[in-house]
Amino acid sequence: MYTKPFSYHRPKSLEDAVALFGKSSDPRYLAGGQTLIPTMKQRLAAPSDLIDLGGLSALAFIRKSADMLMIGAGTRHAAVATSADVKSAIPALAYLAEGIGDPAVRHRGTIGGSLANNDPAADYPAAVLGLGATVKTTKRSIAADEFFTGMFETALQDGEIVTEIAFPIPEKAGYAKFPNPASRYAMVGVFVAKVKTGVRVAVTGAGPCVFRVPQMEAALAKDFSDGAIANIKVAADDLNSDLHGSREYRAHLVTVMARRAVAGA
């Protein structure tokens, strides 16, 4: 597999990165590259310029305050999975990170790259939406509910770089994933969290973009137990359907995974 040629840049700062982006004809930021590079190898993407954010060590951090967990966009999945701060503050997030891709992917892939890409079957969007996190960028702060706008689409503007994700530390949270048996991406992944503002349930993999399930949230707000949502089904109509699972099966799995997420929270 050979990509198309491109110009490679290794900026020393976020400002440099943004400036380079502005000067290039068809640029892409390169974070961990675990999705972008395979896409380029398939020649489904052929950017003129790759701006490598890998050298920006200021983007790789995990910090904890009394009620928030801040993770730098350049933090690798493996770092999130093994961080003592993440494990103590939001164990479900560490568990989720431990299940992304495989060990080698987790050594390269970053949370910022995953969110900016917003693959409909990625894990992180479920945590960010499920916890009601805030996505900070070079320009602004974006609430999770505003960030994910569609399949492979986000609220990010041209050249805008995710810098940090601020997660509220929940009272309880759980994640359960049913992996696609071939790709191991989430066929259905459900993140459930009990946070200050209430209960949030976010589903990835099942639809074209991560989404919340208000009915389950309401039921869990009254009774945070797996039994409380046992009879709540999401509508199958808008869900993905493919070789590995029909929309009806995915709808069914949403309930099963949600129950398991609650039970594990």
Binding site: M1, Y8, G33, I37, P38, P103, V105, H107, R108
Partner: peptide, 11 residues
């Protein structure tokens, strides 16, 4: 451990 097919040498 990393996958050397999923990174450029320059990285």
């Amino acid at each position: 451990a990393v996958k050397s097919c999923t990174m450029f040498a320059v990285q």
